[in-house]
Design a protein around this nucleic acid. Structure first.
Length: 163
DNA sequence: CTACGCTCAGATA
DNA sequence: TATCTGAGCGTAG
């Protein structure tokens, strides 16, 4: 099974709007094999949201799910950023500045842009990257005080990081 | 080539 | 402290 996108919505209405505008079905032509995998994914995230320390990237791969992210991250720069992100464990944080140091680049803003284009938040943990001055920074394309940045804080709290 | 952005450091009040 | 400004650099158009 392949996964190329993980979307997070503000509320049920936004979720339903997305499903409608993209002509999606909640469950369509789903085989029992797929149901089994989907159930495992559901349990994985339930555990994660209850505070269990999990490496979602590893867990997803263990379920034999292929992540279709190569097309999006094909330059050396973007791959370095992604690899640096994947090194982060649950409860661990870093900064855009530190990632820059790690990959030998001062393109801090460009690093943020890579995070912005992350099609699978949580699994590639962009939420663990903060600004150097301690501010929360952006999340899922949004900055300032938005539900997205609130969610970023919540995720860190769930992972046990004091914020 | 130009414009843009999940940034940073420095300046100013 | 809060807000602004320019530097900096990869990417999309």
């Amino acid at each position: 099974m392949k996964l190329n996108e993980l979307n997070i919505f503000k509320n049920e209405k936004e979720t339903l709007d997305f499903i409608r505008t993209n002509n999606l079905n909640l469950v369509s032509k789903t085989s029992s094999f797929e149901i089994k995998i989907l159930t495992q994914i559901e349990n994985l995230f339930l555990n994660y949201f209850q505070g269990k320390k999990l490496n979602l990237y590893d867990e997803i791969k263990n379920l034999q799910i292929e992540l279709e992210i190569k097309a999006k991250f094909k330059t050396e720069f973007t791959q370095k950023v992604i690899n640096a992100l994947l090194d982060l464990k649950s409860g661990e944080i870093t900064t855009y500045y530190d990632i820059g140091n790690k990959i030998n680049s001062k393109a801090y803003r460009a690093i943020g842009n890579v995070c912005k284009s992350n099609p699978i938040p949580l699994i590639i943990p962009c939420h663990r990257v903060l600004r150097k001055n301690g501010e929360i920074g952006g999340f899922m394309g949004k900055s300032d005080k938005t539900w997205e940045t609130d969610l970023k804080k919540q995720l860190l709290r769930i992972e046990g990081y004091k914020i």
